[in-house]
C-alpha cells in the first residue's frame, strides 16, 4: 500500500518535470542541438577518413550523450531552486526517495530521447549501419542510460545547490562514471562495428552490476543529501 503511494508520488514528480520540460521546449531542443554539434566536432577531430570515424563512433556517441545530458541533470533541480519550489516540495508528506525516483524517471526519459537523436545522427554522420542485433543494442542503451542518470541525478542534487555548480557536477560525475562509459562504449562497439559477441555480454553484465549497486546506494543516501 505504502509502496503504491510512493509510486504515485514519484510518478507525479516525473510528470511535473517532464511537463515543464515539454512546455518550455527550449531546454530539450537546445540540449539536443548541442549533442549534435558535439558529434559534428568529433567528426572534425577524428575524420575525414571514414574507417577511423566508423571505429570511433561508439565512443563519440556516448560522450556526446554524456556532455549534453549533464546539462539536463543540473536543470532538473535548477528550475525548482529558481522558483523557490524545492522546500515546499520537500514538505509534502511521504518519503524523499519518491522525489528522487521521480527526478530519476524524468531524467531517464530526457536522456533516452537524447540518445535516440544522438544514435540516429551517428548512424548518418559516422556511416555506421544498423546491426542485425539491434535489440541487444537497445538493451545496452537502456542500461547505459540508467547508469548515467542514477549518479547524474544524485550528484546534481548536491552540485546544483553549491557554488560553482557548472564545474562541480562534471568534476564529481565523470570519474565516477568511468565503468559505465567503458562498458557502454565497448558493448556498443562490439555490436555496431563487430567483435566477439561474448564481449558485449561481459560488458552488459558489468553495466547491470553497476546499475544495481548504484541504484541501491543512491536511494539509501538520497535522504542525507536532500535534507541538508
Amino acid at each position: 500500500m505504502a509502496l503504491r503511494d510512493e509510486w504515485h508520488r514519484a510518478r507525479a514528480v516525473a510528470w511535473k518535470d517532464l511537463t515543464a520540460e515539454r512546455r518550455s521546449k527550449a531546454g530539450f531542443n537546445a540540449v539536443a542541438a548541442l549533442a549534435v554539434t558535439i558529434l559534428v566536432l568529433f567528426g572534425f577531430a577524428l575524420g575525414p577518413d571514414s574507417e577511423a570515424i566508423r571505429a570511433a563512433a561508439p565512443g563519440a556517441l556516448w560522450l556526446a550523450a554524456l556532455f549534453a545530458g549533464v546539462l539536463a541533470f543540473n536543470r532538473s533541480y535548477q528550475m525548482e531552486l529558481d522558483g523557490g519550489a524545492l522546500e515546499p516540495l520537500l514538505m509534502y508528506p511521504g518519503a524523499r526517495r519518491a522525489l528522487f525516483a521521480g527526478k530519476l524517471m524524468a531524467n531517464f526519459v530526457f536522456v533516452l530521447l537524447l540518445l535516440v537523436i544522438v544514435i540516429a545522427t551517428s548512424l548518418v554522420l559516422f556511416q555506421v549501419a544498423v546491426p542485425p542485433t539491434w535489440p541487444a543494442l537497445l538493451i545496452v542503451v537502456l542500461l547505459g542510460a540508467v547508469g548515467l542518470v542514477t549518479l547524474g541525478t544524485f550528484y546534481a542534487a548536491m552540485a546544483s545547490r553549491s557554488r560553482a555548480r557548472e564545474v562541480l557536477l562534471p568534476l564529481l560525475l565523470f570519474p565516477m562514471l568511468v565503468p559505465v562509459l567503458l562498458a557502454a562504449i565497448q558493448a556498443t562497439k562490439a555490436l555496431l562495428v563487430g567483435g566477439a559477441m561474448n564481449d558485449a555480454g561481459a560488458w552488459t553484465s558489468l553495466l547491470v552490476a553497476y546499475d544495481v549497486i548504484f541504484l541501491i546506494l543512491t536511494f539509501l543516501a538520497f535522504d542525507y543529501v536532500i535534507e541538508a
Binding site: 548536491m158 568511468v178 565503468p179 567503458l182 562498458a183 558489468l206 552490476a209 548504484f214 546506494l217
Partner: peptide
Amino acid sequence: AAAGLFGAINYPIVYMSV
C-alpha cells in the same frame, strides 16, 4: 560523506572495468 563513500565503493568496479 556520500561522495567519499561512493568513491571508495566505486574503486573495485573501476579497477575491474579498466
